[in-house]
Amino acid sequence: MNPLHRPGDSPVHRLPAQVKIVGALAFVLCVVATDRTAYWAFGAYLAVLAAVWVVAAIPPGWMAKRALIETPFVVLALAAPFLGGGPETEVLGVSVSVSGLLAGWNIVAKGTIGVLASLTLAATTTPRDLVVGLQRLRTPSVVVTIATLMLRYLEVIVAEARRMRLARISRGHDPRFLWQVGATARGIGTLFLSSYERGERVHLAMVSRGYAGALPDTGGPARPLSWLSGLVPAATAAVVLVGTL
Rank of each mutant, 00 (worst) to 15 (best):
A159M: 10
Y153M: 06
V48W: 09
A122N: 03
S118R: 05
S195I: 12
R168A: 14
G104Q: 03
P7C: 07
H203R: 11
D174T: 04
I21G: 02
V75W: 08
R128H: 04
T184H: 15
A64E: 12
L231D: 00
E70Y: 07
A159F: 10
E70K: 04
P16D: 02
K20T: 03
V12P: 01
D217C: 08
L76Y: 05
F82M: 13
M150N: 11
S226P: 08
G172L: 09
V143T: 15
L241Y: 00
G8N: 05
I69H: 01
R136S: 10
A123Q: 05
P175E: 06
G111M: 00
V12D: 04
T139Q: 09
Y39D: 07
H203N: 09
L68K: 10
V94M: 08
P233D: 08
F73Y: 13
S95P: 01
E70L: 10
E200P: 05
I58D: 03
G187H: 07
G210L: 06
A237I: 02
A222L: 05
F27K: 10
L78N: 09
E160D: 11
R36D: 06
G111Q: 03
A123D: 02
A147K: 08
L121S: 06
A234C: 13
A222I: 07
V239H: 08
A117R: 12
